[in-house]
Structures are given as structure tokens and as C-alpha cells.
């Protein structure tokens, strides 16, 4: 790990004046992570000269690099019991570290490629789910062994972009696939479609405030909401739907706040639980091309603008200012309850 880089980023973070405190006191119950690629012109084989991968935002607002300098992380997860157990998905599949990122192991074999998402069941923290271009894999032993768990998924159409685990019950998982949202209630042994879609489901999120509330965004069919734990889904007409939506996020500090990141529509937010939506691209680079949006434990809204940089907003998108990590593309924002260790 490049310590100098880490320090530099940290310093940059400190140098940025913090805006007013968010509405809800920031009880530090959560930690905020991103996976960022800060090597825009990298192609396979070329030299990596910058620090990439997973970063944790420290209390001072600086990004602390975690784990391996990898340009290709698409998703990551931690063992809820132990932050030293890290899972990342990359083009190789799934990597795991048990020691905070010093040693890594490739968890999948050659039959699995291009891990797209990874999730750890908080109620069965040895259980790891892996989203793949051709299905879903499961491990009961912290990814030491992986097996495909696809019963009920279609033969074709199981391109899986997103995995979301219901924090209320072990083994209850929603998967965003090419042709819809699928649900398992038995740790992946059986899946059933709960929402059909034409194109890929890009993201699924469970409300941190009410575990029955879920949001999902899709490539060509806009945003969807479920109020019954993901069993049934209702289209969210006010959200943009004409361009691909890449992700959706709740605000842990405010149950009414949601944000969507879209390629072509940029940042949209709702402050009424998703009934109405506002274009929050003003102040962001033109083009409205956003990889991801995220909200930190303090309620700050972040947006990763393609090939530009990371921006943050203290007023939920009304105004923006650049964050550190210039030139980054963020593939994942992850808000997690603080781990025991």
C-alpha cells in the first residue's frame, strides 16, 4: 500500500472546510466506504501509478485506503463482525482478505468471472453472495468455497448486477438480474422472480429506517419501490426512467431522503420518500453522467461524475463542491453499521 498516497488524500480531506452539521446528530454508528478507480487511462497491462480501490472515510472526512490497490473493484463487502475480513469483486471474480487487506485470496475458480456484486448476510456473517454475469454464487464459509445457487433463476437472463440482503432475516436476499428482481428466502437455494424487467436491474437498496421499504433502479425501466420487504414492487413514476439509472441510496440520517445516480440524468433526489424527485445536477459538470451517488453517515450527498471527480453536497444536492479523489470513478458507495472490530 502506498502510504504516502493515503496521507495525501487524508490531508486533502482535512483541508476541505466542513459545511454545517447535518440535521440529525451524527452519531457515529455507521462507516462510509467507497470503491474508487483513480486511474482513468488504465488499461490492462499498463502500469498503475495511483491508489485505487476501497477507501473508508474517516471522521475527519479523509479517505483512508483499505486493502489492495486495485483499479477494477466493482463492489465490496465486509464481515459485519470484523472489518479485517474484506471481500472485493473485480474482473477476476471475488477476492477476500482476512487480515485487513494484507493477504488476499481469489475465491472463485475459472468458471466464475467478473464479479459484479458481493454481499454478506449480517445475520449469518459467514454467508457470502456473489453476483456474476451468468448467475449467483454462494458461500457458507466466508468464501473459502463457492457454489452456484441458481435454482429458480432463468436459464438465460440471470446476468446479476446487484445483490441486497434483508437485514431482518438470515438467508433472505434480493438479486437484480437482466430480466428482473429475484428473491430467495433460503439462502439462495430457491429463487423466484418478484419483479420482471426488460433490462438489467442495476441496484437494490433496503431502507436503513424501515426494513420493509426497498428501492430498486433499472437500466431502462426507471425506479421501483417495495413496501413489503421486496415481495411486490411499484413503479416510481416521478423518478427519471428514460435513461439508465445506475444506483439508488437512502439517507441514513433522514428516512424521507433518497438519491439516484443516472447516466444521462445525473443526480436526482427525493425528500418525500420517493414520491417526488428533483434534478440535482446544478453545480455538477455538464452531461449528467453519474456513476454513483452515496450518502455518508452525516447525511452528506456524494456523486461520482464520470471522468471528472467526486463531488459532495451538504444540502442534499442543491449545491456541490468537489471532494478529494480527483479523477476518480466510484463504483460503489457502502454505508455500514460499525463493526465490532
Amino acid at each position: 500500500m502506498n502510504i504516502r498516497h493515503s496521507l495525501l488524500l487524508s490531508a486533502l480531506g482535512c483541508a476541505l472546510p466542513l459545511l454545517a452539521a447535518p440535521a440529525v446528530p451524527a452519531a457515529p454508528e455507521y462507516e462510509f466506504f467507497i470503491a474508487a478507480n483513480i486511474n482513468r487511462n488504465y488499461v490492462i497491462g499498463s502500469k498503475i501509478v495511483t491508489t485505487n480501490g476501497v477507501f473508508r472515510r474517516d471522521d475527519a472526512g479523509a479517505w483512508q485506503h483499505v486493502g489492495y490497490n486495485d483499479t477494477g473493484i466493482s463492489a465490496f463487502a465486509f464481515d459485519p463482525r470484523d472489518r479485517n475480513v474484506i471481500y472485493t469483486t473485480t474482473i477476476n471474480g471475488l477476492w477476500r482478505s482476512l487480515d485487513g487487506g494484507k493477504l488476499w485470496r481469489i475465491c472463485n475458480d475459472s468458471e466464475m468471472t467478473e464479479g459484479l456484486d458481493v454481499a454478506v448476510d449480517p445475520n449469518a456473517p459467514d454467508h457470502v453472495y456473489l453476483a456474476l454475469p451468468d448467475g449467483i454464487a454462494f458461500s457458507s464459509d466466508r468464501a473459502q468455497h463457492l457454489e452456484r445457487r441458481e435454482h429458480g433463476l432463468p436459464a438465460r437472463g440471470k446476468f446479476t448486477r446487484a445483490l441486497a440482503i434483508d437485514r431482518t432475516r438470515a438467508g433472505r436476499v434480493l438479486a437484480g438480474c437482466e430480466i428482473g428482481i429475484y428473491l430467495t428466502e433460503d439462502a439462495g437455494k430457491n429463487w423466484r422472480q418478484v419483479l420482471p424487467t426488460k433490462d438489467t436491474v442495476a441496484d437494490i437498496q433496503q431502507s436503513p429506517h424501515d426494513p420493509r421499504i426497498w428501492f430498486a433502479v433499472t437500466q431502462s425501466a426507471g425506479a421501483w419501490r417495495s413496501a413489503d420487504g421486496g415481495l411486490t414492487w411499484i413503479h416510481v413514476p416521478a423518478a427519471p426512467g428514460d435513461r439508465p439509472l445506475y444506483n439508488v441510496t437512502f439517507d441514513v440520517t433522514n428516512p424521507n431522503r433518497l438519491a439516484i445516480g443516472s447516466w444521462g440524468r445525473g443526480v436526482w433526489t427525493s425528500e418525500d420518500g420517493g414520491q417526488t424527485w428533483a434534478d440535482r445536477n446544478a453545480g455538477l459538470p455538464a452531461g449528467a453522467r453519474v456513476w454513483r451517488v452515496g450518502v455518508d453517515p452525516a447525511g452528506r450527498l456524494f456523486a461520482s461524475v464520470v471522468e471528472e471527480t467526486l463531488f459532495q453536497s451538504a444540502d442534499f444536492g442543491r449545491t456541490w463542491r468537489p471532494d478529494a479523489l480527483a479523477g476518480s470513478a466510484v463504483k460503489k458507495f457502502l454505508l455500514l453499521p460499525k463493526a465490532v472490530k
Binding site: W95, R96, L103, W104, R105, I106, D109, S110, E111
Partner: peptide, 21 residues
Amino acid sequence: PAETWYSGRSSAENLAEASAF
């Protein structure tokens, strides 16, 4: 052993994985 390879897998594991592919 596993820790001597970037993959975190032992020589035997790497060989088996590669061979399978």
C-alpha cells in the same frame, strides 16, 4: 503456500484452477 502467491492460493490450488480452465 497460499501467502506466497498474489492469488492467496497455494501452488497446488493455482495449478488445479489453471488446469481446470
